[in-house]
Amino acid sequence: MNEKLLILGMMLATFSVRYVMFGASSRIKLSPALLNALRYVPPVVLSAIVAPEVLLSDGALSVGLMNARLVGAIAAIIISYTTRNLLLTIVVGMVVFFAWQGLMIL
């Protein structure tokens, strides 16, 4: 394995994807339709990252009270929906998750 080539190549492959739109940003004009579609990017990407983390366990769908992540996520959804307080959502979600996990070990 040529480690130098590997790291240089991975660096270019990563940076080019991250930079191409930034580099062109002063010259490109995004159409109103595209700008409208981009409003969906944050919620859609974040939920696409979270859903498998919460609902899959070793690649299999895990829906039930045995799934401490699901219980913690439901608590987080309820807190976020009722309070809109991000820090409280994080704290309550983590506490419920750890407590539930602890209860199941007992």
Binding site: L46, N85, T89, I90, G93
Partner: peptide, 18 residues
């Protein structure tokens, strides 16, 4: 279980969009 912090943070960020 520390990685779960990312899940709850993202949940708290997504809900206000809905």
């Amino acid at each position: 279980g520390l990685d779960f912090a990312m899940s709850v943070t993202f949940i708290g960020m997504v809900i206000p969009y809905l």
